[in-house]
Design a protein around this nucleic acid. Structure first.
Length: 532
RNA sequence: GGGGCGUUAGCUCAGUCGGUUAGAGCAGCGGACUCAUAAUCCGUCGGUCGCGGGUUCAAGCCCCGCACGCCCUACCA
């Protein structure tokens, strides 16, 4: 039997009708960095993402565009969502669509089980309905009327009075799980992370849970309720189930047992669905609850939540076209404390690109390889006796590798990168202090020159391995240039938890040319972006 | 109304269990160096830790109150 530990990570599935923006990309990148790290560490990793395609809104836009909803979804998946993943180098292992047969069958099985076990009952759903919107309105879109509608409740969009209507719905007895949920949060304090998110969830559940309406009859674009096909499944109930239908629920028990339970990465706006409703659903079905639910923060632009309507919405390609996908990935993972809201600005992006990627890491690779070329005919230098400065670098590499791994296990991506960057900075300082260019002028200090450059080159090797999950393109180029590809094979196959082990590069190995990893970008490029 | 989170240097943020002169990066200023992407390295300037009380030998951290900001208060995916 395999003893590798399983790491199953999910992102929310995209609602196909949305336009991709950097908020979607941010979640995907975070998930991808975590997944790549675990995969490179040898964990049995599975990264799942996909699309949510049912619901009235999609039916409407499809109809408005004169096509069937499935065809509409097909188009959006191919033209918008899969390209987004490619644009930022997401290494997902699967892509599930809620219109996949495996999903629809799994949802039907799950519903039937809950129904058979008595967790679902038929009831009356009563709510305020807007004729203009042709739908029941959530509280957030109901306001007090003014003028002629004084004293009445009106629709926030149409400002017309709402009607109190009733509809037969099936309900999930979520209220029955209140105590078990509270016990879960109590027993596993890190079930919901970070702690601020956990507090919100606990407070919410303590207020008391109501049962959840899980079916609709007013439209038919959804998964039919198995025992009553005049109803379709409520979209959220449908969507959440993707996390198990994608890994064999009800179809492939071996695969399901291997993957489940998952770690869920979500935006804090959809935390409740994942930390309350979803675990309750799983409990009802007799399945294990997720391992962790981690809520990340929002991207703030000018101090406000990014939004299309305020013209602060940014498409990922606006950034990747200028700075590249590695820079996109690095910037959002490094600059934002994962789990908190974070400020985005073009100025900060451009500054960090230049200072950290170009001048810090890129230039480090460039100067070390240039000296190997100049002083050692483009080969890995011969290593001599170590001096304290060399030992300090070796020990730092081992230490940051350890710390970075611990941070990643705790979802602290920013912390992991900060730790690794200590090695980047230390290597730049080390080279300046050791002055290999001065050693090169004295034939008697040839052995020392070799040790210094070997140490610096090994440092690059460790950095390539440690940064591969974050900036896969640049590190792949570096890996090849180091001559490591020829010796050890693909970078992604290097065990990341051993990246700090010293002395792997073999002296004499031929190295290759290295193109500039992060070319300098004219400062007005950032200004141009900001003006868009 | 009830609840959560936040407020630390010009900017973006760390700050663990209360424990020495509150830290980093960027920006600014001064210097060193030349292997490198005019890059790197060193030094330096910079803070009433939102405000007011309290507990304590000791508070950025704990308690109370206040101000400001963001968020949650169930079916928008």
């Amino acid at each position: 039997m395999a003893t590798r530990s399983s790491f199953f990570l999910t992102t929310p599935i995209f609602y196909v009708n949305d336009a991709p923006h950097i908020g979607h990309a941010y979640t995907e990148v975070a998930a991808d960095v975590l997944a790549r790290w675990h995969r490179q560490a040898g964990d049995d990793t599975w990264l799942l993402t996909g699309t949510d395609e049912h619901g009235q809104k999609i039916l409407r836009t499809a109809t408005a565009n004169g096509v069937a909803p499935k065809e509409w979804a097909d188009r959006l998946v191919e033209s918008a969502w899969k390209p987004l993943l490619e644009q930022i180098d997401i290494s997902n292992d699967d892509f599930i669509r809620t219109t996949d047969a495996r999903h629809e069958e799994g949802v039907a099985k799950f519903l039937q089980k809950l129904y058979d076990d008595g967790h679902v009952y038929a009831g009356e759903f009563e709510a305020l309905y807007c004729v203009g919107c042709e739908e029941f309105k959530p509280k957030s879109e109901i306001v007090d009327g003014t003028g002629e509608f004084e004293g009445q409740k009106v629709c926030a969009i149409h400002s017309k009075p709402l009607e109190l209507l009733q509809e037969k719905n099936y309900f999930f007895k979520m209220s029955a799980f209140q105590d078990r949920l509270l016990a879960l949060y109590e027993a596993r304090p890190d079930f919901v992370q970070p702690a601020s998110a956990r507090n919100e969830v606990v407070a919410f559940v303590q207020q008391g849970l109501e049962d959840l309406s899980i079916s609709r009859t007013s439209f038919d674009w959804g998964i039919p309720i198995p025992w009553d096909e005049s109803h379709v499944t409520y979209v959220w109930f449908d969507a959440l189930l993707n996390y198990i239908t994608a890994v064999g629920y009800g179809q492939d028990e071996a695969e399901f047992g291997r993957r489940w339970p998952a770690n869920h990465l979500v935006g804090k706006d959809i935390l409740r669905f994942h930390a309350v409703i979803w675990p309750a659903m799983l409990m009802a079905a007799g399945l294990e609850v997720p391992e962790h639910v981690f809520a990340h923060g929002w991207l703030l632009v000018g101090g406000e939540k990014m939004s299309k309507s305020k013209l602060t919405g940014i498409a990922p390609n606006e950034i990747t076209d200028t700075f590249g996908s590695d820079a996109f990935r690095y910037y959002f993972m490094r600059a934002i404390s994962f789990g908190h809201d974070g400020s985005f600005s073009w100025e900060d992006l451009a500054a960090r690109y230049q200072a950290e990627l170009a001048n810090g890491f890129g230039n480090l690779a460039s100067r070390v390889l240039a000296m190997n070329r100049k002083y050692f005919e483009g080969r890995v230098p011969e290593r001599g006796t170590e001096e304290p400065a060399d030992i300090a670098i070796r020990e730092l590499a081992a230490e940051v590798a350890l710390r970075a791994d611990a941070s990643i296990r705790g979802f602290a991506v920013h912390e992991a990168i900060a730790a690794i960057w200590e090695l980047v900075d230390a290597l730049n300082g080390y080279i300046t202090e050791q002055e290999p260019w001065a050693l090169a002028k004295d034939p008697e200090r040839r052995a020392r020159l070799g040790t210094v450059l070997y140490t610096a080159t090994e440092g690059l090797r460790a950095l390539a391995e440690l940064l591969a999950p974050v900036i896969p393109r640049a590190t792949a180029k570096l890996w090849t240039a180091l001559g490591a590809e020829a010796s050890f094979g693909a970078l992604e196959a290097q065990p990341i938890r051993e990246a700090g082990n010293w002395g792997r590069l073999l002296p004499g190995t031929e190295q290759g040319p290295l193109e500039v990893l992060f070319p300098r970008i004219e400062t007005d490029a950032a200004g141009e972006g900001a003006a868009k």
